[in-house]
């Protein structure tokens, strides 16, 4: 892993991009990394395109400016590809992971992006496992597989602890969310 990894999450307000970035940050923190997780600063806007960010580093993180050149981009909603340039600032050797039922080849062509493109049908996975499309947790599994930024077994142990805190009042959804992560990890492809 590079000394510093910067990640940008694209979602629509309500899909959980901020939650995904915070969960990833907290899990990475537990595995001994220095982390930042923050949303695009602005009013809550249900359904509108929103951003969230991570910095994950072996070294102390002092910068407090925005992430402008992320090496990893996660897209929680396939319709965003029509309205947002998700490749903006991403270097040619970067990685873009998209929630879609389309093939990586098709998305790579559509984005005209030289780097690696991964796809996974996170809506299908979460609808099956949780009864509704919550793409953020499956995309965490896909992210770990596509980038290897954290060791998967460590990630699972720690994210389960985060779910146990987050879903203390509805523990019945923990297993479904863990299944989402597992399945997306298995099913994501490039």
């Amino acid at each position: 892993m590079a000394t510093l990894t910067e990640i940008r999450w694209h979602g629509r307000g309500g899909q959980g991009s901020k939650t995904a970035s915070i969960l990833l940050g907290k899990v990475a923190s537990k595995t001994g990394k220095n982390i930042q997780a923050f949303p695009e600063y602005g009013p809550e806007r249900m359904g509108a395109p929103v951003l969230a960010f991570n910095r994950i580093s072996e070294n102390e993180l002092t910068v407090h400016c925005q992430v402008t050149e992320p090496s990893i981009v996660v897209v929680l909603d396939p319709t965003l590809l029509e309205v947002v340039d998700v490749t903006e600032g991403v270097p040619e050797d970067g990685t873009i992971i998209v929630n879609t039922n389309k093939s990586p080849g098709k998305i790579k062509e559509k984005l005209d992006f030289a780097g690696e493109v991964f796809t996974v049908d996170a809506n299908e996975i979460s609808t099956y496992e949780l009864g509704a499309p919550f793409p953020n947790t499956p995309m965490l599994g896909a992210l770990i597989k596509a980038t290897g930024i954290l060791e998967f077994e460590d990630f699972k142990v720690q994210i389960k602890k985060e779910f146990e805190k987050k879903f203390a009042s509805k523990p019945e959804v923990i297993e479904g969310n863990m299944n989402c992560i597992d399945r997306a990890y298995q099913e994501v492809r490039n």
Partner: peptide, 12 residues
């Protein structure tokens, strides 16, 4: 403490 930049960002 700086608004949003620190107040709303998760850090160690």
């Amino acid at each position: 403490m700086d608004g949003f930049i620190i107040s709303h960002a998760v850090e160690n």
